[in-house]
Design a protein around this nucleic acid. Structure first.
Length: 795
DNA sequence: CAGTGAGCGAGCTTCCGCTTGACTT
């Protein structure tokens, strides 16, 4: 018999809090939401005031059963889910599902997991805030309505299995629009002048730059000529103090950005590592939008800074959140114990921990004090002034441990130290250079910079940034990719020892690493949604509905009214689009085929983007898939025609044609019914007949060796050698061999027994297994992975 | 671990936010 049952959202939190509260309190977790809208079409009774039909999530039945039991045995139940919209709803769902009474239920909240905060919460209980719960219900229902009405429109008008939603569709739109900006960008060019000088009496170089740029090379050369006969006198020296402030401690979004820039982690990896650190008790909660630190944390950081760096480096303070959408249910992400500079565990976890430690500590350290010096150097014959900049750090402050990175750190030259200089002093010119520069378009998004943008727009929450990015990639709207870049010439001229030399140099432009690119489907879907559902695609849509959710939370409007007003016109658009919109295929005429004179066009086919020659009904058509990295929007006629050079006939072998082409799995050679991949180091356009035969024979040999064992009892049963060792193949389905099995001695009955044991995992759809909750998500995952096997079962 | 691309057209897909697991191919 427990006196008090406290329910929080996270099990790790439960563990910590239990320690603070002592014997009379049992602390358990709900593992997030316990109930959600039903999966099917009767989840929302639209005609009946949008009445939601909630069901306990299949993977939560066990947790719910246990909480129910504990609740019955307890005198008082404390609902301690997070203090935000979702948390309030979790408490309400618990209240409903566990069958609690107002008389023995209390709602408590805290923003930080510290003993005083918890004790204070217990002293100040309140009731469930039903208005806030209603705001959550409105949010949930709106998202379901949007997602489950828009997606079927896409299935009908574009392609099956696609999806649309308030968050993901806008995320894809950002990427599509940025891509167009990049592709349509016309680069400007100008000429930048830099120079190096020395004092008359020493050799330390002083770097200077002309603040203005020249529009043409002729002007730049004219300037170099004038400089050649000039003297260089210092006309002015300006010294001014400056300060730099540390960045606020991490939120989910800023952690993802910095881990991406400094450690190169994709956002999903950052979250996985952070989760581990959190579970091990090393850091506070990692899904937060708050930069707030508890007093305990501020004191802890101050003590650590004083002992490690000295009194002068400490500057305790709290930061305020800039983001308007923040709900601030948690603290910022910080180490639980500042005295731990590192933690045990693997290297990647440690690197992330150190980043969090440094950022948190730096946020509590003094500002850096700098002295910036600007020196004007007159070019006597040109009537222009070069400028040299220097910076000295008078006091390093937080820079001792941490400096935030920027997304665009190209071209950023650190102003260094300048030697002592005085006004009127004359300098020696070492050399002066004019270099052609090109303007750049806005950069393509990385995973992390997309998260930053979404957060700025108030779209998505800390818990969904990483999943959203994975969803839009899984749906095939976006791919993370690299681009090699193309060489570009630029002019550079150098003045040295009174002589000007001009040359053409080459730089690589357009190099991209791990950037997000839209696919043809992503572009097509975005254009389609933009045309028919402008409101949902608007970057301000989420902010707009958030405002209304706030009004619901304040009790100003009722949630059904808000949903009604949104849904009526929205649903009309859905009906209208379903009835009247054309099916879209992304068709585009690219040009004409010089050989046949027929039109060359591109569109999306059943297996992705393709180009075709000929488009008349009765014409004979030729098809070819686009290669990775090509898009319908940007492909040129030359590139398209190149695709039709495949399959390429290499020759004949034993009376059969040998051809080379590119398939879904890369370049291959076809010989009769045999397909053999072409090794990566060979070019399929250059492969000769003997080389092809070599590849074919190697493949035949591998095929022959693939069969390890067959059985006379069943012709469809074989043991084959695969990439991961031997496996069983039966009626085109594959099965795993137990690790310790000896292939040599396996009998027909042994193998069938192994298959017997494995089949239930694929076809687990009977009601028998419903009682076993842990089986449900597993069966779901398998069903997806083995779509083919499933299709077979049905027949 | 397969190499297609209109065709017959069953029954399927899908949202956003809370949380952690237990798998392998």
């Amino acid at each position: 018999m427990t006196k008090n049952l406290v329910i929080v959202e996270s099990p790790a939190k439960a563990k910590t809090i239990e320690k603070f509260l002592g014997k009379d309190f049992t602390v358990r977790s709900s593992f997030g939401h316990i109930r959600d809208l039903d999966k099917g079409d009767d989840a929302i009774d639209i005609k009946n005031g949008f009445k939601p039909n909630y069901i306990v999530s299949p993977d939560k039945t066990k947790v719910v059963a246990e909480l129910k039991k504990l609740a019955k045995e307890s005198e008082m139940i404390w609902l301690a889910s997070d203090e935000d919209r979702e948390g309030e709803a979790i408490s309400w769902h618990l209240f409903e599902v566990l069958g609690l009474n107002e008389s023995n239920t209390k709602r408590i909240v805290f923003h930080e997991i510290t003993k005083p905060a918890i004790e204070n919460a217990i002293k100040n209980p309140r009731k469930i805030d039903k208005a806030l719960v209603d705001a959550q219900q409105a949010r949930r229902i709106l998202d379901r309505l949007v997602g489950f009405e828009l997606s079927p429109v896409l299935w009908r008008k574009v392609k099956p299995s696609l999806s649309a939603g308030r968050v993901q569709s806008v995320a894809v739109r950002l990427i599509v629009e940025r891509e167009r900006e990049v592709n349509n960008f016309n680069s400007d060019t100008d000429f930048k002048i830099t120079a190096e000088f020395t004092k008359k009496d020493n050799s330390k170089a002083i770097k200077a730059e002309l603040p203005q740029r020249f529009k043409s090379e002729a002007e730049a050369l004219e300037f170099l000529k004038l400089s050649s006969g000039s003297t260089f006198d210092i006309t002015n020296i300006e010294v001014k103090p400056a300060q730099r402030k540390a960045a606020a401690p991490f939120t989910t979004s800023t952690l993802q950005q910095e881990a991406s820039r400094k450690l190169g982690y994709p956002v999903a990896k950052t979250m996985l590592l952070a989760q581990k650190l959190y579970e091990a008790g090393h850091i506070t909660y990692m899904r937060t939008d708050s930069v707030n630190l508890s007093q305990t944390a501020i004191n802890g950081a101050a003590a650590e800074i004083k002992s490690a760096f000295g009194e002068r480096y400490s500057m305790p303070r709290n930061y305020t959140t800039k983001s308007a959408s923040a709900q601030e249910a948690h603290e910022a992400i910080r180490p639980t114990y500042f005295e731990n500079h590192t933690v045990g565990g693997d290297q990647q976890e440690n690197k992330l921990y150190e980043l969090i430690w440094k950022r948190s500590i730096a946020s509590q350290m003094a500002n850096a004090e700098l002295e910036r010096t600007i020196v004007d150097i007159n070019v006597s014959k040109a009537n222009r002034t070069l400028r040299a900049e220097g910076e000295i750090i008078k006091f390093d402050g937080f820079l001792k441990v941490y400096l935030e990175s920027k997304d665009d750190d190209e071209d950023e030259e650190n102003a260094g130290l300048l030697p002592p200089l005085s006004k009127g002093e004359s300098l020696n010119l070492l050399h002066m250079t004019s270099e052609q520069k090109f303007s750049r378009p806005a950069p393509r998004y990385t995973e992390a910079s997309l998260v930053k943008k979404l957060e700025e727009l108030g779209i998505g929450r800390p818990s969904t940034y990483a999943p959203t990015i994975s969803t839009i990639q899984k749906r095939g709207y976006v791919i993370k990719d690299n681009r090699e870049g193309t060489p570009r010439n630029y002019q550079t001229s150098t003045l040295k020892n009174g002589e000007i030399k001009t040359k053409t140099a080459v730089e690589n432009t357009g190099v991209e690493k791990s950037k997000l690119f839209p696919t043809d489907i992503g572009t097509l879907v975005t254009d389609f949604l933009n045309e028919h559902f402008k409101q949902i695609m608007d970057y301000g849509f989420t902010a707009l509905v958030e405002k209304e959710f706030d009004e619901i939370a304040q009790g100003v409007i009722g949630w059904t009214k808000m949903i009604e007003e949104f849904y009526t016109p929205f649903h009309k658009d859905v009906d209208n689009t379903m009835a009247n919109a054309e099916r879209v295929k992304g068709e585009r005429i690219i040009g004409t085929d010089p050989v046949s004179g027929k039109a060359v066009s591109g569109r999306i086919g059943r297996y992705g983007p393709l180009v075709q020659i000929g488009d008349q009904e009765d014409e004979e058509k030729k098809f070819a898939s686009l290669r990775p990295g090509q898009t319908l929007e940007t492909i040129t006629i030359e590139q398209a025609l190149e695709l039709f050079k495949l399959p390429r006939l290499i020759g004949e072998h034993l009376g059969e044609k040998v051809t080379a082409a590119i398939g879904r799995f890369g370049p291959y050679i076809k010989f009769g019914s045999l397909f053999a991949s072409i090794p990566k180091d060979r070019d399929l356009f250059e492969i000769t007949m003997p080389e092809a035969i070599e590849i074919i024979e190697a493949k035949q040999k591998a095929e022959a060796e693939k069969l390890i064992k067959s059985f006379k009892e069943d012709e469809e049963l074989e043991i084959l050698k695969g990439r991961w060792g031997p496996y069983i193949s039966h009626n085109k389905s594959n099965f795993k061999l137990p690790k310790d099995s000896n292939v040599e001695t396996l009998t027909y009955n042994d193998v069938m027994a192994i298959i017997e044991k494995q089949t239930p995992s694929g076809g687990r759809k009977t009601s028998k297994t419903a009682a076993k909750p842990s089986a449900a998500p597993k069966a779901k995952a398998k069903a997806k992975a083995k779509a083919k096997a499933k299709a077979k079962v049905k027949k």
